[in-house]
């Protein structure tokens, strides 16, 4: 871990402006991912801007009947909020499927969205990794890749996005609110927050330099059976091999997103037209472009079967 200076931000706009102007500045909120990576010198900020005191930790109802979740709402608090439990159950379920109680007590809503991949080659600074060191190559391709991505990947990177929460946010059509260095705000549909790796796997989001997430807004509740099914070898405290977030309406229509298979929460709206036909048809649409490795080919079948189980459960 390199030395760094530290300050506590006084307002979101101030934090954003400083992050844009101070060389090597990074925001720190929960810190559970950033400090982990700083210890391995994968992240080497020269300056940390602590945003914990900005008051972005409230969950408020929006005028159109949705919920506005402050960027600093802890995963535990978001999962436990009775409005979320009643009306956005898929989000609550996804949150409690992730990490551990200790981590959820600290990890924030925005930080969860922005957490970086758990690809073991990314985590080992001795190994080439295009995400960590652009142009150095991807050592995961041809290496140990059981956990890694099957769709949305590229020749440069096959890492997955590790979040559970983000998968639920994606199926809920959440919107990410930000403030930019000049003080302007904008709203980014969750679908557009994360970028596919392509030739630039080190560019992970559409956020600009210094841009700070201030909240995530959930549209008004859509009802339906809301399920999150996370599949893993270990019964708890493990990243997903595959996860399925689904909202299934009584008429059989609905939405589906997958976790553990792609560089971002994976949703293909067109595939949802096949909801009534069942898991096979939906998965065929979701994973039509899958390019698995020998190690992770099983994820394609696992996704289909997990979705089938979720749909069966939704039917009651």
């Amino acid at each position: 871990m390199r030395p760094f200076t530290y300050e506590r931000a006084t307002s979101p706009a101030d934090a954003s402006a400083k992050a844009a102007s101070i060389p090597g500045a990074r925001f720190i909120a929960g810190g559970t991912n950033l400090l982990d990576l700083m210890k391995l010198q994968i992240e080497t900020p020269a300056h940390l801007i602590d945003v914990n005191g900005l008051g972005l930790d409230k969950i408020e109802e929006t005028p159109d009947g949705g919920l506005r979740v402050g960027a600093l709402v802890r995963n535990t608090d978001l999962a436990a909020d009775m409005r979320v439990r009643r009306h956005y159950a898929v989000l609550s379920r996804a949150l409690v499927a992730g990490a551990s109680g200790q981590l959820r007590n600290v990890a924030t809503t925005a930080g969860n969205l922005l957490q970086r991949t758990r690809c073991p080659y990314f985590y080992d600074p001795n190994q080439p990794c295009n995400k960590r060191q652009p142009g150095s190559g991807c050592s995961a391709i041809g290496g140990v890749s059981r956990q890694l991505g099957v769709v949305g990947t590229s020749e440069a990177c096959i890492a997955t996005h590790p979040s559970d929460m983000a998968v639920a946010m994606r199926v809920l059509d959440a919107t990410v609110e930000t403030v930019r260095p000049g003080g302007a705000t904008r709203a980014i549909p969750i679908a557009e927050l994360h970028r596919l790796p392509g030739d630039t796997p080190h560019v992970e989001t559409s956020l600009e330099r210094g841009e700070l997430i201030t909240a995530v807004t959930l549209p008004k509740p859509v009802g339906g059976a809301q399920l999150y099914h996370k599949v893993r070898d270990r019964a708890s405290y493990a990243f997903a091999l595959v996860s399925v977030a689904a909202i299934v309406q009584p008429d059989g229509t609905g939405r589906v997103a997958l976790g553990g298979v792609a560089p971002k929460p994976w949703r293909v709206e067109a595939a949802e037209a096949h909801m009534k036909q069942g898991a096979k048809a939906v998965t065929a649409g979701l994973l039509a472009d899958a390019r698995p490795t020998d190690d992770n080919r099983f994820k394609v079948r696992l996704a289909e079967r997990t979705l089938a189980a979720v749909l069966a459960e939704a039917r009651g």
């Binding site: 073991p120 985590y123 080992d124 070898d233 270990r234 019964a235 708890s236 405290y237």
Partner: peptide, 16 residues
């Protein structure tokens, strides 16, 4: 050994 930490090398937890 690629999975050289306790997130990568999974050992049983309480729930197992």
């Amino acid at each position: 050994f690629v999975n050289h930490d306790l997130a990568g090398y999974e050992v049983p937890v309480h729930a197992d």
